[in-house]
Nucleic acid binder design. Structure first.
Lengths: 213, 213
DNA sequence: TAGATTGTTAATCGATTAACAATC
DNA sequence: TAGATTGTTAATCGATTAACAATC
């Protein structure tokens, strides 16, 4: 029953799937839904879903009936911060960075990329979508002036730490790191590593095992 | 000492960071390295690193000396499948899909995107980088004819299941799903969900907590 | 009422961390 | 030898799953 604090990282990873599931139920006009039903749809353990729901739901569910879809959805989106916009900058306007900047989909989750930075002369001064690309030298100043809270790192591994330091100096509170490298950040800053290399490795490993048999 | 099978998912997620760390050590000309040293650099537990190394290293380490950097690197890259190319197709050539196709970085990890698919008429027939975009109707046939092993899904949530089914029908063995939705796949197929919404939610949540105090 | 579903307490499981003997 | 580091066995921790009483 919405104890605010304690949602485990694992639970946070399941939340987006609940949201998606609840939205599609809402679209079908379903008014209430029970944990076992959602668990069945998502192939998850029933108790797990119940606990996850309990962790975000303000008013709780009702025995025999379940949870009101719309209300649970709202509570969950709030817990996930989907509606609280966080200003961000992205550093490294290479192909991945370019992609992420032009992908507007993150806005739905509260990420608003205000500016991009790069060191490459021919990128500086250009505009991606509606996002301007500035000289990387100005990262810290820009972040301070605009109260930027999140830095997205899409530079090569060997430049990531330097960029990270500049972002920290600029006062960002969270860093979303796409470089496959370890970053050293002060304890107060949340580092979220997006580990695509690991995902690929897990896939690759599975295929190898499979094709050996 | 390289028991092949049992590398946990969590361990797999740490591997890319080891690889990056070992590469940079190798570049500095370092010949051997011990688990405690790497643990210190990566801010990980020493025993954990030792166990992870033991899981991939063929010849094992030597007391007081540690592991030969080059050899361990080779063993690890092999365990991760970095050098075993897997052919893939990507479905959904929207902005995220476009980004991933044009990002050549995944080739290093063994993912070779051979073709992209979309339903949008004005995208079909175009070329992204060197990758052609075909009509989504032909997914299954293409995969079968070309022995495609991995399908990458970057379509909106409500189209993902349909696309997934076509990929499965085409005989892919692994699916890398970027849509924030649950997919139903046969047990034999490995589904790897790339959960960017969750990453953002975790960041967002942290910022909110922090700014309340 | 009977039965489904909730919330919660207890048991299980897997991964991390600690302890320690073996080795170079 | 002494001390660092390995590999391994045992203890701890956290998350998942099972069990069950309370509720509608």
């Amino acid at each position: 029953m919405a104890d605010s604090q304690k949602i485990s990282k694992q639970a946070m990873h399941r939340m987006p799937y609940y949201v998606e599931c609840l939205r599609s139920l809402a679209a079908e006009g379903v008014v209430t839904v029970s944990a076992p039903v959602v668990a069945e749809k998502l192939k998850l353990n029933e108790v797990q879903v119940r606990k996850d729901f309990a962790a975000v739901s303000k008013s709780g569910g009702r025995a025999k009936i379940g949870f009101p879809v719309q209300e649970l959805l709202k509570d969950m989106e709030k817990a996930l911060g989907y509606h609280s916009a966080n200003s961000a900058v992205l550093v490294g306007a290479g192909s991945l960075g370019h992609a992420l900047v032009s992908y507007r989909g993150f806005e739905e989750y509260g990420l608003r990329i205000m500016a991009a930075f790069d060191t490459q002369k021919d990128l500086i001064g250009t505009v991606i979508g509606e996002v301007p690309v500035y000289d990387a030298a100005g990262i810290s100043d820009y972040c301070q002036e605009h109260g930027i809270r999140i830095g997205v790192i899409t530079v090569p591994a060997d430049e990531a730490q330097e960029v990270c330091d500049m972002l920290v100096k600029g006062g960002v509170q969270g860093i979303w790191n796409f470089a496959p490298t370890y970053l050293d950040v002060p304890e107060t800053i949340l580092l979220q590593n997006e580990n695509m290399a690991a995902s690929l490795a897990i896939l690759s490993r599975h295929l190898r095992e499979r094709n050996r048999k």
